[in-house]
Design a protein around this nucleic acid. Structure first.
Lengths: 339, 339
DNA sequence: ACGGCGACGTTATACGTAAAACCCCGGCAT
DNA sequence: ATGCCGGGGTTTTACGTATAACGTCGCCGT
């Protein structure tokens, strides 16, 4: 390390202001009403400013025993959803003088190796978004308050939970399609085995069951455009009556579906309707614009941080459930007359 | 704050292992060869494990005077490019026992208000990616080592720089289009005024100047699909000969262009060629897949972190220039015969 | 005239860790 | 026998901050 001119400490400030270190601490900590004269406080602030003093956070954290820092663990950063969750969490955090540090679990869904070594900051709590249950073992072991976002309600160890009403989202898209007259549905699911898969499948089956002649088939693919394209191409060239609507568990999968359909010469939505999930920016980038389910990602982050703050305050927050909402765009229409 | 059962300290470990705190520190810090017997070391490790001991990072940081933590400042998180920069930086950091904390400058290009208050971790250095020059003032004031990525080479205060050869990227796309026979080019630039604008415009002009009958016109739009669509629609309905190729300064702008062209009934690439920049996932999501310029984002992050480590080591790293590469896909073709 | 109190500070201490400095003891060369 | 060395620890200190505990001084009420 270079010999920087050694950052000034509160003692340096004290010396140049002609007061004791304790006084500096009081003034800069805004705890001086009636204990330090206006004039002295001014001197201290001037000295601090002149020296370019910045308190040493490590020392402060050590002294206070709290770091006012939370760790947000996410499976991937390239995904817009998590970026938005972060934004929401960071905003609420800032309002309370907290900071948020990010830890993108490298394996995605694999066990987080050691978040605490990587995010070197000392932490007050952890928020985990959309993480696989097992991936959180390392975190649970650290007995830090853990808030779980968008995760299996059965997963143990959460001090608080914020969940999206995914099932209702599926019900909404399915209802929308059934309402348009579709009866043969294809469900394109993500192949990463997770609790959310069952939730979706069940919700879908539940809605379909209520309509006499409606049927649904499920295929799955890795959450990736290429894989989705292949899966859809394969499913649609199979013998038997062709589905008239395609329910995708994510906008990325829907994008892959678009590609497959174009190859097969099927027009969206004239020949076949397609729905997505998540309402990423992608949804309006592709053509036709995608009917999908919008998620209040920022809100998830906000509620998650709020819950963590509540836990840190010694109270027990209620589980939060956030609604999702269907966004109808141009990729859905009644089935073609022939079908 | 709840009364957690008080995290065990190294002294607790020492007590249950029957040794002194110093010994614990030596063993757990892996500095005990020849100073502590194998047997005692074992006892210490067992005790630490049994108690679930985790060192207090705040204390360690205070003692060592270094936090092994860097701050990465980015203008936006939803942008895939920055997510990739982060990934690269974090990877190199991890190899050296460093962590990376993210600070998405809230205003995007506005002055970062107080990154250090927000990212509460104590920091060893700062890496700023694609930030406007003025936005870094607050950071420069803190006299922490600052590495600037993808930024104005003229901007002061950088201890190290990593830049992309943007100009060459523009030269490559332009050359590609001219090679296909295009002579009337439209350049869609981002309207956020920044150093990069001039670099691009100049590079473009330079290439065009060498081809006798080639002309280029520039229009700009906010970096957003809707705005880009409007700008392109407006530019192409203007009187005069229509350009046969559209050079967009980003894939997002290109996506807007696609929408405009579809509205105008122009086919890509048969009627008009389009190129992007950045090679986001978006580029292969839209149809036809976009010819664009790929940026080694992870490499930018890696080199940035490497440079920071070099600076922290007291040495002066050379400025790094990273090449970019044209990715030819389906959105470019020779101009239509009529033109 | 004296206790007391409010205004204004100061002194002292603790947070948990890393590491420099020290200590003890058994064996070995002189 | 004595000095020395090295293995195996321990004692002590410092990092920079926040704050509890403690002074001091001037003035006021009785």
């Amino acid at each position: 390390m270079t010999e920087q001119p050694a950052r000034p400490t509160s003692r340096d400030v004290a010396r140049t202001a002609g007061v004791s270190q304790a006084t500096v601490s009081l003034v800069l900590g805004d705890k001086w009403r009636g204990r330090v004269s206006e004039r002295t406080a001014g001197l201290v602030r001037d000295a601090a400013h002149a020296l370019g003093y910045r308190p040493n956070l490590a020392a402060r954290n050590l002294r206070l025993g709290t770091t006012r820092t939370a760790l947000l663990v996410v499976p991937a950063l390239t995904n817009e959803f998590f970026a938005r969750v972060y934004t929401g969490a960071a905003e609420v955090a800032a309002e309370h003088g907290f900071g948020v540090v990010l830890y993108p679990s490298p394996a995605g869904v694999g066990p987080a190796r050691d978040p605490f070594a990587s995010a070197r900051a000392a932490l007050d709590g952890v928020i985990a978004s959309s993480m696989a249950t097992e991936a959180l073992d390392a975190i649970r072991g650290a007995d830090l308050p853990l808030v779980m976002l968008d995760s299996d309600p059965e997963a143990p160890g959460a001090a608080a939970r914020v969940n999206l009403d995914i099932a209702d989202g599926i019900r909404q898209v399915t209802g929308h399609l059934l309402g348009l007259g579709h009866r043969r549905l294809l469900h394109l699911a993500s192949s990463v085995a997770s609790w959310t898969f069952e939730v979706r499948a069940e919700a879908l089956a539940g809605v379909v069951r209520e309509v006499p002649d409606a049927v649904v088939r499920t295929v799955s693919a890795r959450l990736e455009v290429g894989a989705a394209r292949e899966a859809v191409e394969h499913a649609l060239t199979a013998p038997g009556p062709r589905p008239t609507a395609l329910i995708c568990d994510g906008d990325i999968l829907a994008t892959g579906a678009y590609k497959a359909l174009r190859r097969l010469g099927l027009r969206v939505p004239e020949d076949i309707s397609v729905t997505g999930f998540d309402d990423l920016a992608l949804a309006t980038a592709i053509e036709p614009e995608l009917t999908t389910v919008g998620l209040p990602a920022e809100r998830v982050g906000e509620q998650g941080m709020t819950a963590l703050l509540t836990v840190l305050d010694g109270r027990r927050p209620e589980p939060v459930h956030l609604p999702v909402s269907l966004v109808v765009r141009a990729s859905t229409a009644p089935p073609p007359p022939g079908a």
